[in-house]
Design a protein around this nucleic acid. Structure first.
Lengths: 327, 327
DNA sequence: CTGAAAGCGCTAACAG
DNA sequence: CTGTTAGCGCTTTCAG
């Protein structure tokens, strides 16, 4: 910012921050120059000096469909507030992935951001001064406020839907338990719904595949090749769900006449590739929105109403589920 | 960063930046402390001191479906590079909307980011030192490299599709011309396709509505209430398209038996609300990806292969378009 | 009412 | 090999 207005930096700073003690004439002159040059003070330098920046950080490992969806909700929550949004996607340039949230936070907090939303963090023992909210944390809830989807209820929802249609042999496709907390919870929902309906769980119908297209397809093929194959499948993540639809088609099984399928979306885009798929949907945007709202509460020095929000999922019935053959 | 390791800040800095002139023992000790604390140097302080930050900024007015989609493409382009991504959504806290890109740039460039992608900027006379690429600029291309969708070709595509099905009375729903450059271009595509097919353009069939749900619906109702009403409508933005589907249904018109509809998506989500809609689709992710790739070229000191990229749109045929009644 | 000077966390140049 | 020092752009005392 050159001294186009013929005053000192200090004076400009005062004008920018609406400090009193500057003559009206000077204010006008400086304002004019500012407007003309489209100038704004460097966020970086300012935040190095000041405590507050009025900027909220959303820290993500990467921007993919899930986090992008979440960002929309976060942006909505911030509209009408005095805060600005900075999304930081480090993409793991530094060391490995584990503990990324702590490194990113260390990189941004104290300066640049007043608080942060951590999206799908691996660990939660963050302590750095700034307020933090975690969305969909891998490991359980700790002291940090969290927002997540009710995966247990979601698993139950999918399974009850199929049971309600008359299915009794219902397959389950999950992920290896190490991955996230959400996988086992969906399976537990499946099991508890079966139990409630008095249907014994058949271990042969419960399968696990890695997050890999081929692996998912092979697993589905095995499941559907069983002598007493299931009449319905609850595919508890989008990759499994898509694989199920494809493999069923390739095996000449009609959906839903021969096989009903219910998916569980991590990603809203799944609808585009499989518009017919009945799915359990997570309120991803709402998760982002709530996370920011909680963070704003904390920044305002208030205790948030809830420290751990668990949002219900919703079942969207589409063409891929119907009563079993012979009903 | 406390001096847990019992050395000076300078030494830590050297270790962090892999500078030579530090004993192996010291390096190890410092590294251990860094790893333990999950420390990373403050992006802010570092970027204030250094010229390069290895961070690319994506400057958006707000995060909504269009920009969120674009971010996915940008994130993909950045994977595997040494750059990190910062998305800045100012949301217009400062002054009004016009010229926001210049203010944001002034706020971030020079410090924090090495270069920026401006998403849907209003003006382009940005000059600030850092390299900049504009995506979908409102006003025409200037010196700044740009990436946009070929709205002219898209408008033609939609219209040719309907003509090919046998329609001759094709309505057009657009926006007031002031808004963006893209609106008039879609209309021009519509007109030129009609002209090429030797169909005279009927001014009564060309309507304009603001970006407002009610206004859009009223306009559609007028159009469909015409004595000699169109057998097809090209709704050149998502709001018009959705309004057309709804109003047609409310008027007892079956789509596509009585009326064919083709939309033009600004937003991939439209599919979810109207899965049956035939649409012209913009390659939004690709736009984000290319913008970042061009920026990376510039940052590497190379002249990008193309300074103005215009990507073709694609027609996705769905159930809402069919030959006109009586064919 | 205005300007000069210190210091935010960091890195580069230099001295020890 | 290590520590000390200056200064990045800004805001905030504190003198003029």
């Amino acid at each position: 910012m050159a001294e186009h207005a013929g005053v000192s930096v200090a004076t400009v700073s005062k004008v920018l921050n609406d400090r009193h003690g500057v003559s009206a004439a000077t204010v006008d002159r400086v304002r004019a120059v500012i407007a003309e040059l489209g100038y704004e003070s460097s966020l970086v330098a300012r935040s190095l000096r000041n405590q507050r920046t009025n900027v909220i950080g959303i820290l993500v490992w990467d921007i993919e469909p899930f986090s992008a969806e979440l960002l929309k909700g976060a942006a909505r929550a911030i509209r009408g507030t005095a805060y600005e949004l900075v999304v930081y996607a480090g993409g793991g340039k530094g060391s490995g992935r584990v503990g990324w949230e702590r490194r990113y936070l260390s990189r941004l907090s104290g300066t640049l951001i007043d608080g942060a939303v951590l999206v799908t963090p691996t660990v939660l023992d963050v302590d750095g001064g700034a307020p933090v909210v975690a969305v969909d944390p891998h490991s359980g809830r700790e002291t940090v406020p969290t927002v997540d989807a009710d995966n247990l209820q979601g698993g139950r929802l999918a399974t009850e839907h199929l049971i309600g249609l008359g299915h009794r042999r219902i397959g389950f496709l999950g992920r290896p338990p190490r991955d996230l907390e959400s996988g086992p919870l969906r399976e537990e929902g499946y099991r508890s719904a079966l139990a409630d309906a008095g249907i014994p769980a058949d271990p042969a119908l419960v399968r696990v595949a890695d997050y890999d297209e081929n692996d998912a397809r092979n697993t589905v093929r095995e499941l559907l090749s069983l002598p007493d194959r299931p009449t319905a499948v609850f595919a508890a993540n989008d990759m499994s769900a898509i694989a199920t639809m494809e493999v069923a088609a390739s095996m000449g099984l009609r959906v839903p006449e021969d096989l009903s399928v219910v998916g569980f979306d991590n990603v809203p885009e799944s609808v585009m590739s499989e518009p017919a798929l009945t799915t359990v949907e997570q309120p991803i945007q709402m998760m982002g929105r709530l996370a920011v709202e909680i963070l704003l509460e904390m920044l305002a020095g208030r205790e948030p109403a809830q420290r751990h929000v668990r949002l219900p999922t919703r079942l969207i019935p589409r063409a891929s589920s119907a009563p079993p053959p012979g009903r």
